[in-house]
Design a protein around this nucleic acid. Structure first.
Length: 134
RNA sequence: AGAGUGGUUUGUUCUAUCGCUGCGAAGAGAUUCGGAGAGGAAAGUCGGGACAACACAGAGCACCAUACUUCCUAACAGGAAGGGGCAGGGGAGACUCUGUCACAGAUAGCGUCGCAGAAACUAUACCGCCGUGGAAUUUUAUUUCGCGGUAAGGGUGAAAACGUGAGGUAAGAGCUCACGCUAUGAUAUGGCAACAUAUUGUGGGGACAAGCCUUAUGGGUUGAAAUGCCAAAUAAACCGGAGAGUCUGCUUUGCAGGCUAAGGGUUGCUCGUCCGAUUCCGGGGGGUAGGCAGAUAGAGGUGCGAGGUGACUCGCAUCGUAGAUAAAUGAUAGGACACGACAGAAUCCCGCUUAUAGAGCCACAAGGAAA
RNA sequence: GGUCCCUUCGUCUAGCGGUUAGGACGUCAGGUUUUCAUCCUGGAAACAGCAGUUCGAUUCUGCUAGGGACUA
């Protein structure tokens, strides 16, 4: 069975209040120049979103050119798109998972780098949810 | 021959799979199909507009901008052509070529010109030059102390009352004259004009206006986080300041009306003007932070023809060309070549400035190294 | 997106076009002390960059770079 690799608008975080909540209350993890945030909320708060939604951040102070910021966001979105099947059917039905990624590494990342670290993070999250279900 | 510098034009491409944002079609829907999808600078936000909101009887002041002329443009601190200055080159010369210039006014006024120097602005007397009075030395003469004249010579400085020659004088001086330089007025000729040339009159110490300023011209303020509509939500909380006087009517408290006035508007100030008691102004707090419009066909591009020295304008034909809202162009695999620079739309447009690998074209050529 | 402001020793700051660019803290050297601290003396150390105006620019003007503030 082929896995779907879509990334629609509903899977991207765009509400300002939810973003503020994520970066204020979310659990934080740092690895290899990437800061990950995740937060589970009730689905009623974000009715138009799907089960999982993400946001990618590249700081303007660190990356002066808009070209570089766009590139980083695209690479991380691509990495998430190709790895999000790991979390399929693991989120509770009444909950909604928000993910945030801030890239603070030096220089522009390679795609293989992004792919590897996003995959690692998602698998750790997946094992965490599996344990919770049991 | 090549490396280099400056200007200008251009600014990788093909196939497959997965994926993103609008649009169109089909479908009850999930979804499927078709087609479109960053730049010459999208950047800086330096000018100017379009558009929108608010304001606007009027006058004065302040503030800001511009500054050789004519033209182009919707407009501009932009552009074109011309004029002038400066620098450099060529030429025996007449002259010519190239580059560059924020290029109105210093004879409206104020201010500044450090150090050095005698003196730095109604100029100045340190040395020197000349005249003259006194003293010393035995006289010619020299030295010295005063008074007066002088800007030729000296040295200082970025800058010291125009240069050369003659006259003139005690010595000198545009003090006078000739020639020249320069400022300005008048006339004539050429040019739309800036200006140029000629004749003639008057005059002669600067510099700085990217110091204040003067003159002329122009400028209402704020910018898509503007603005309009819908939905949701709420607070007439609290603090500070001002809430005065007088007249009339009703039935005492009080209420209503008029006048002056506090206050407010006139988007900097003053006058003026308008509003002016169910209070006004300021601070501060609470809620919401979603959607639609604005928003992509426009001072549009391309080609041809005509006009103009040119910027540009006119006519005809033709093209359909991003529209997101945490924000769309990416990833993987495989080829081609020069191995891909600067760099990503956020209301739109015109300019300017800055960045830019490689390739094409044009111009420039100093010094060094190698053969 | 828009409107503005600021860059001076290592840090915080003064600076009327002509200055040896001043001060404080820090730093270095010497002295004082048995030694350290304090104290005393002395030194090094800066105008963000590039052009223009001017006899002369940290100061005035333009461009570039960096930093900051405000704005529903």
């Amino acid at each position: 069975m082929p896995v779907k690799h879509n990334l629609t608008k509903a899977e991207r975080l765009h509400s300002k209040t939810l973003i503020d909540k994520l970066f204020k209350n979310g659990t934080r993890k740092y690895s290899y120049g990437i800061i990950f945030y995740n937060l589970l909320t009730d689905k009623t708060l974000s009715s138009d979103q799907k089960d999982v939604s993400i946001i990618v951040v590249a700081r303007k102070k660190q990356f002066k050119h808009a070209v570089d910021r766009n590139r980083i966001k695209r690479l991380f979105r691509e990495a998430f798109r190709n790895n999000k099947h790991i979390l399929d059917n693991l989120i509770p039905d009444d909950k909604h998972l928000m993910l945030g990624m801030i890239y603070v590494g030096n220089g522009l990342p390679e795609y293989s780098f992004c792919f590897k670290h996003v995959e690692n993070y998602l698998t750790t999250l997946a094992t965490h949810f599996k344990n919770q279900k049991k």
